[in-house]
Computed example of a mutant assay.
Amino acid sequence: MTEGFWLLPEQIQLGIRAPQSVLLRLSTGIVLQRKASVWAIRTVWIDWVEDDYLKYRAAYWQPHFTREEVVWAQHGEDWLFLGAGFFLSYTQRTDSARFFALPEWLDDVFTFSYPFLNLLVQILNRQGYTPLHAAVIGANDRFVLIPGKQNTGKSTTAASWVIQGGQFVTDDFCFLQADEPTTVYGFYPTFRIRKEGLSLLSPYLSANQFQQKGDSKYFFSTLVHCADRFVSRAPIKAIFCLTRQGSTLSHTHVSPKVGFAYLASSLAFAVQHRASSQLCIQAMRKMVRELPVIQVNLSPYVTENYAYLNELIAMY
């Protein structure tokens, strides 16, 4: 077994002990360090254990379950997350976790579908952090949050921003403290692009730079192709609520109520991953009160959008 370390806020680190081949695969999707941080005051160890997977599969998996289904089992503070070819568990008493994935599941599960997110939520929620369903883009310490209202193009916008030279924290989710919601933390430097968004990015990226998972999702690892574009922590200056109506670029200030409506998917995201809904609502309310909320209408033209967003972000 070899070790890799994944740094979190609050001087927490995850120490992953697994075969070298597994750590190499994981390192294309998460930022692993070779050595433990000297600043960490808490290390949560995660060990690769095939025997536990076989045991839990025999106990919980049913013959009629499909490949897409997962099992969540909780006993007090201990929990288990089990899929058709993987598992992740956490034990409160030892503050440690275990995981395993069949070889054919490694990329699908740990690089692209991030079950580690369940562990991050459980650890950070107790520290006052809540997950947020949003993209975060920017440059030079000026970043904006793009809430995750469906089909408004947050991932495609974030991807086109990055491949033209911008920086990003996330295209899908981040963490923030409920009482300090203007600093966000990102963990997965991989874009998830829907099939319909590929045509917008095709002038900048070749098909072999994407990995297809399923019929409609494509993944682009910035750690492989442009590692310097990922920022793990950033200050938020504004909330951009995206629309796409026609080809006219425009923006207007809107009420906190609009921002809260765009952030509403974060509440469902938090509940889905067993985070505190009250903590999430607290962060959302504080964020829309403290930050300007801007309705931004983008065009179908990626280059125009980049120039426009660049100017707009610089204003806040």
Rank of each mutant, 00 (worst) to 15 (best):
S266A: 09
D179V: 11
V169G: 11
F143T: 10
P181D: 06
S202N: 04
P9W: 08
Q74D: 02
T94E: 01
C280I: 07
L120M: 12
V169I: 15
P103T: 07
T183Q: 14
W48P: 07
S232T: 03
L32E: 01
S160Y: 00
R25K: 08
Q211Y: 03
P292R: 03
R194C: 02
D141G: 09
E77H: 08
D172L: 08
A270F: 07
L267V: 14
G83T: 05
L309I: 00
Q177I: 10
V44P: 02
D141F: 06
Q164W: 01
V109L: 02
Q122V: 04
W72Y: 14
S221E: 00
E69G: 04
S232H: 13
E104A: 10
N151D: 14
Y185N: 07
R192S: 05
L7N: 09
F100H: 08
P9E: 09
F269L: 13
T182N: 12
G15D: 01
W72F: 15
K154H: 06
A58T: 12
K154V: 10
E3Y: 08
D179W: 09
P131Y: 01
N140E: 04
W79L: 13
T303S: 09
L24P: 00
G153D: 01
L205R: 02
D95S: 10
L198G: 00
F173H: 14
Q272T: 13
P19G: 10
R233K: 15
G138N: 06
Q92P: 06
I281K: 09
E290A: 14
D171P: 05
S21N: 11
Q33R: 13
I146F: 06
A97H: 03
L223A: 03
T111H: 04
T91E: 07
N297W: 00
T91K: 15
L106V: 10
I16G: 04
A59K: 14
W61Q: 06
F260E: 11
F220I: 05
S265T: 15
A270Y: 06
F187L: 06
W45R: 15
E304K: 15
Q177W: 06
F240L: 06
A159C: 13
Y262C: 09
I12T: 08
L176I: 09
F210V: 05
G29N: 05
V38G: 10
P203H: 00
A101Q: 02
F65P: 06
R57V: 05
R67Y: 03
P147M: 08
G165V: 07
S27P: 07
N151G: 12
G214D: 00
